[in-house]
Simulated scan of single mutants.
Amino acid sequence: MTRGPHRIPGPRDLSTRLLGAILVVVLVGVATAWVVVAGIGPAIFHVHMMQMGGSNANTTVHAEEAFRTASTLSLAVALIAALGTSVGVSLFLARRITRSLIPVTAAAGRVALGDYTARIPSVGMGAEFDDLTAAFNTMATDLGRIEATRTKMLGDLAHEMRTPVATIGAYLEAIADGVREADSATLAVLGDQVTRLSRLSEDISVVTTAEEGRLTMHRQDLAVTRIVAEAEAHATAQYAAHGVTLRVRTSASANIAVVDADSDRIGQVMTNLLDNAVRHTPSGSEVVISAFVTGTHAAISIADQGDGIPADHIGHVFERFYRVDASRDRAHGGSGVGLAIAKSITEAHDGTIRVESAGIGQGAIFTIELPLIARAPGARSNVPSSANSVVEGP
């Protein structure tokens, strides 16, 4: 666990307040002793001097007695005053601290019982208590969010698994009843459903690991042109099978751009985005991959001519299991977490991802941006361009 920076005690810190309370006790004792010594001691001493006779021995005896009496009385009064002040201040602070800890204990008990709406009010007992209050309230908020996400994820996961499990069950029952034969077609259907469940499990594992910051990555200097070329190469056969043309447009600045990234992870982002694009693009249309540089970031966009996204759905497309058209996506075998994975991996690279769409039937543009680490003047990428690649101006 990472510790926060050491903070120099300030006037509102509990330690400073306790020190102040002790100083009050000491000062009261000192002040009382001074008042007694300055006001009472001389008077007692004077009385004894007036009572002495002319004898030097009597003078000495009375002087010593005056000193002892004045000192004893001064110390006794001072100690009594200091003791009374100390007890009073200690009782006051103890009651304040106890009253301040009561809502902490109550809120902790509510959180332990699953009530993540519990919060600790500010108690005004110093910066330490304020830090404790802020940390507890933040923890309760995070736990509530995690619990809500977990509940939603489990519900969505159960919903996603229902269809393939039901299909497998129905086919197995039909085979057992002799209604269907365990022929190659039936086995193919069962294999597809098992593959779908396996892919769903893997996708959930990846997105959960990424969102928790535990994603293993091997980052290196990676040319943007290499990212685009590898993505195009992996998707070409799939696009040809769907009758969709895949084109690449690379600006001159992107052609020399380099980012710090994990090749496999960024390739997974590109694969998920290209899979999403081809599922929503009709045969005979095209999808365009564009690479360019904007400020201190390299950007890669994937624009399709497909279904488009309504404005009220734009803010939700990167959520797990969220679908603009649930029935259509399930028919095309999407797990529902591909875009969530793309978002998590991109953000793990300190990048951003966004989507734009003019509406239904107007297609969509997904864009990822990654921080640049080098743009050497005149440098060229060693990744060859394909026949569908076009190098544009800056």
Rank of each mutant, 00 (worst) to 15 (best):
Gly124Ile: 02
Asn137Ala: 07
Val123Tyr: 00
Val123Pro: 03
Ala140Leu: 00
Ala140Val: 02
His159Asp: 08
Glu128Thr: 02
Arg119His: 09
Asp130Ala: 12
Val123Trp: 00
Leu154Ser: 14
Ala140Trp: 01
Thr117Cys: 05
Asp142Ile: 08
Asp142Thr: 11
Ala134Cys: 04
Leu132Pro: 09
Ser122Cys: 01
Leu154Lys: 15
Leu132Trp: 09
Asn137Lys: 10
Ser122Arg: 15
Phe136Ile: 07
Glu160Phe: 02
Leu154Thr: 15
Leu143Glu: 04
Thr151Asp: 08
Arg150Asn: 13
Thr117Ala: 13
Asp131Met: 08
Gly155Cys: 04
Ala148Met: 10
Arg145Thr: 14
Thr149Ala: 12
Asn137Asp: 05
Asn137Gly: 10
Arg145Tyr: 07
Ala134Ile: 13
Ile120Pro: 06
Ala135Tyr: 01
Pro121Ala: 00
Thr151Glu: 07
Thr133Ile: 06
Asp142Cys: 00
Glu160Ala: 09
Ser122Tyr: 06
Ala134Thr: 15
Pro121Thr: 00
Thr149Gly: 11
Ala118Asn: 05
Arg150Glu: 04
Phe129Pro: 02
Thr117Ile: 05
Ala140Met: 00
Ala118Met: 03
Glu147Ile: 04
Met153Lys: 15
Ala135Gly: 12
Phe136His: 09
Leu154Arg: 15
Ala158Ser: 15
Met161Pro: 12
Met153Gln: 14
Ala135Leu: 06
Leu132Met: 12
Ile146Thr: 12
Phe129Thr: 09
Ile146Phe: 11
Ala135Trp: 01
Arg150Gln: 12
Ile146Ala: 11
Asp130Thr: 13
Gly124Val: 03
Arg119Trp: 03
Arg119Ile: 03
His159Thr: 12
Asn137Val: 02
Gly144Glu: 00
Glu128Met: 01
Arg145Cys: 04
Thr141Trp: 05
Arg145Phe: 05
Met161His: 12
Ala148Leu: 09
Asp156Trp: 06
Glu160Gln: 10
Asp142Ala: 04
Glu128Ile: 00
Leu154Cys: 07
Met125Tyr: 02
His159Val: 01
Gly124Thr: 07
Ala158Trp: 07
Phe129Asp: 00
Met125Leu: 13
Asp142Arg: 14
Met153His: 15
Phe136Gln: 08
Met153Ala: 11
Leu132Glu: 00
Pro121Arg: 05
Gly124His: 08
Thr133Leu: 04
Gly124Glu: 00
Thr133Trp: 08
Met139Pro: 03
Ala118Asp: 01
Ala134His: 14
Phe129Trp: 07
Asp142Leu: 03
Glu160Arg: 08
Lys152Glu: 11
Asp156Cys: 04
Val123Met: 11
Asp142His: 08
Leu157His: 09
Asp156Phe: 02
Ile146His: 13
Arg145Met: 10
Phe136Ser: 07
Ile120Trp: 00
Ser122Met: 01
Thr138Ser: 08
Asp156Ile: 03
Phe129Ser: 03
Thr151Asn: 09
Asp156Pro: 10
Arg145Trp: 06
Gly126Arg: 02
Thr133Met: 10
Asp130Gly: 10
Asp130Met: 03
Thr141Phe: 05
Asp156Asn: 13
Ala135Arg: 14
